[in-house]
Computed example of a mutant assay.
Amino acid sequence: MVNVITSVAIYILIFTSSSFAQSYDIKDLEQLADSKNYEEFLAHARDIRPSKRDKYWKDLVQSMAIGQVDFLIDKKIYNKSQFELIEKISLWPTLNSDSFFQVKRNNYAQKYLKSCFEKAAKYCKSQLFSFWHSSNQRPELAMSLVEYLKLYTDHKDFWGFYEKVTRSDLQEYYCSKPHLKKAVFSHLKNNLMEIEDKKVINRFIKANIGATCWFSIVDDLKGLLFTNAPIMREFAYKILDTQDALSQVERDSFHTFYLLDNPVNGDLFNRAWATVETLGQNYGRRMNVYKYLLTLDPLPGNIFAHRVGLKREAVAGLFHSNFPEYIDHYARTCVNFYKGIGNYPTGIPTLHCNDLFKITKDRPWVNQTLKIQFSSIKK
């Protein structure tokens, strides 16, 4: 029993003496600071008891930590052990709240990670994500890390980085870049394609995209309204409509185009139908839409060949009653094209001439002279 007690006492004495011998006081740290011995200083900076870590100590730590990073960058020392050291001390409260040190840390980390990826080390990607999650996640840092992931890995989902940009104070600078606009659009599509509730859509956009980022994609969304991809143009319309981002002529034109293409029964069909009826009562508003439709090539007219006869004839009749100028222009363009009148650099501008003249054969929806001319051309 005595031997056991003696052994324990000796162990405690040795342990205590060893610990005491390894502990540095503030004078030791001052000596290390004066000699710019950064690594040893940082290894023992927290030997100082928490109650003694005053402003003077904090200033020393901040200065030496920044000195260590500057030294590593100056000497181009980018290795795993030094990176891990910087990452470890960056979590100290004194350094975690020091914005200047965090800028230096970000700079070193980016240089280290680039070097790491270039060496094809297997742990680089996990280190990148670990660093990102504990960093200040500044927009410029996010964009830089995305570039590394794109260049050196097969990683595809970057929204965890981009979301720090799209609502940041730098969104005006970054959100006009094509790859970020594409990412914003994909994020909206992936999350809102099946959502119809305007309030839900509005909340999602407000939570994920700042005003500048939103305006950067408005023109791209509008560019989808008159494409040959029904799903994408209806999605674009839904998003623009919930944000009140369409002018009256843009909304009227889309509704009109929608009916002239291959409309599907539903809320949008009903709204489009009501719009064309309204245009029938407002010549000026109708002419604004007419002018816009004339800029499209080819002219919209898939409805004239719709497989459902009742829908095809109902929509054609609606246009005859409320938008006769368009039916007339489509028919006249058919005749002119086959007569060789006019310039058509992209080919036939009216793809459904035969269908239009077929469904209007026994109806007064197309000028009789045009019917005779087209019939003689096609003989």
Rank of each mutant, 00 (worst) to 15 (best):
I195D: 02
N190M: 06
L240W: 12
K222Y: 09
F226T: 06
T242K: 08
N136W: 12
N191I: 02
I195L: 05
R251N: 14
L188F: 12
K156Q: 15
K182N: 10
Q127K: 12
F161L: 13
G160D: 14
F204P: 00
T227I: 09
A211C: 00
P178E: 11
E172N: 08
P230S: 09
T227A: 10
H133V: 03
R167L: 10
Q243R: 15
Y162R: 03
F235I: 07
K182D: 14
I205T: 06
Y174I: 01
F204H: 02
D252W: 04
A120R: 14
L170N: 09
E147I: 03
V200P: 00
P178W: 08
L149W: 05
W214E: 06
T212C: 01
N208I: 02
E172Y: 07
S176M: 02
L151R: 14
I231L: 11
L141K: 09
D220H: 06
A183H: 01
T153V: 12
K181W: 03
D244P: 00
R203M: 04
W159L: 06
F235M: 09
S186A: 14
V146D: 03
K156L: 10
S176T: 12
Y148M: 14
Y123G: 00
D197W: 01
K222R: 14
Q127A: 10
S168I: 08
L224Y: 11
D169K: 12
C116D: 09
